[in-house]
Every structure is written in C-alpha cells, then in structure tokens.
Design a protein around this nucleic acid. Sequence first.
DNA 1: CATCTCGCTACAAATAGTGTAGCATAGTTT
DNA 2: AAACTATGCTACACTATTTGTAGCGAGATG
Lengths: 113, 113
Amino acid sequence: MAIPLPGSQVRGSKTGKAIMALLDLLGRTWALGIIWNLQQGPATFRELQQRCEKISPTLLNSRLKELKALQLVDMQETGYQLTQQGVELIAIILPLGDWSKHWEKQVLEAQNV
Amino acid sequence: MAIPLPGSQVRGSKTGKAIMALLDLLGRTWALGIIWNLQQGPATFRELQQRCEKISPTLLNSRLKELKALQLVDMQETGYQLTQQGVELIAIILPLGDWSKHWEKQVLEAQNV
DNA sequence: CATCTCGCTACAAATAGTGTAGCATAGTTT
DNA sequence: AAACTATGCTACACTATTTGTAGCGAGATG
C-alpha cells in the first residue's frame, strides 16, 4: 500500500489535501493503535507488538515504515518512539480517551433499554 | 466485521476498554473519512458516496451500519447526519485539519533536502 | 560454540474492500 | 397508467490487505 504522502493523491481524495493524507494514514488498520501505545514511551519492536496485543509482525512493520516516512515515529537506541510531530498529533487526539468513556456509557445504556 | 462495541473484545484489545473500541472503529477504512465529510452537513447515501469520491456502496453501507449502531451517525429526512455524539467527536478531531497543513510542510521539506 | 534476544521477512490462509450492475421502492412527469 | 427518475442498498466476482506461524541473520552473553 502506497504511503499517503500529503500533496499526492491518496485513498479517498484526488485533491491531495493534507488532511486527506492524514485521514488515510490514520484510517489504516492499527495506525492509531500504534501511536496510542507509543504514548507510554519508547518500545522495542517486540515490546510494541505486545502492547498491541494481537498485531502481526508483518503489519506492524509496514505501519512503522509508513509512520517513519511521515515523520510521526522514529527509531532510536531506546526503540521506536514518537517524533516531535507524533507528540503533537497525539496531543490532539488524547482527549478521545476521556470522551470514549462517556460515549461508552451512552452506548451501553441504549443497548439495555 | 463485528461492530466494535465498547465493553467487549475488539481488534487489538481483550480488555474491552472504550478507547480501544473507539480506535478500532475509527481505524477502519473510511470511518474517519465519512465522519469528516459529514461535517459539511447531512447527506443522502448517494451524496455521501460522492463526497467520499471513491468509496464503494458496499463499504459505505457497512461503515454506516457501524456508525449508526455506535450512535455517531443517524438517518433523518435530510439524510445521514452526525448525532449529538458524532458532533462531540468531530469537535475533538477538528484541529487535525490545521495541524495537517503544518505537518505537510515539514514532510515535504524533508523530501526535498 | 551454544544460547539469547533482537528486528524483521516469508508465505499461505483468512478477511476486508472494490467496482459494476442492478433491484425494489417512491415520487414525478407525460 | 405507463414511463421516467432518483433513492437506499444488495449481489457478486475480483483484488488487496491482514493474520498467524515459522524462522532467518546479526549482535550480545557466557
């Protein structure tokens, strides 16, 4: 799967708008999960695999390649970690954690009615 | 693909944490794109298909089912639209639009070096 | 050298997504 | 009323992506 480079055509948009590249990237299986799990700090490949519980190494590797190419993640001595930009991104997304709890309550309530 | 109901096991987590269900949902092909495109206001099925440029009706329909089940989208006279909760969610995500422009610049700069 | 751990690849099977055609229903026009 | 239109959505064969297991090659340790 081609890397969704901002400025070029991506899945879902011919316009090449940056947000579309970003949505394409984040919409790929596990991309958000990997970023989310890197919040806790750097991790080796195998440790990251475990944080993600059920990710296959094949997929983990391809997602990491994409995330590296797009400067959200890089690899240092300590393992994979978020870049400056990755940190900025997760800062935006972080509120989802709290919101999801409130959302869960509503969804489960609706189920029980 | 099973609907990632918060509270039950989902892709990437046995714990059933709400955030994991949410990340699973948002991480599915086109889920973010659909939500993003509904920002502009309600749309009929076919109109939504066009906003998303290249989504197949099959997939659009399954994503919509999931989003409806999880109360982020519903269908009214005017077509599909974000629910109260869908609006809350997009409010969190909205800053990605601006951030992506800044990100694009950095990524493209790095390419040209 | 034997044994670990590491990042990562191979590859076949399973699953998910695409694209085109078109059905069924409802409303409009002639 | 027959013909035309537009809608939401399904069928289905094809293609692409993901999974899961096994294991390689490199480096560290004893």
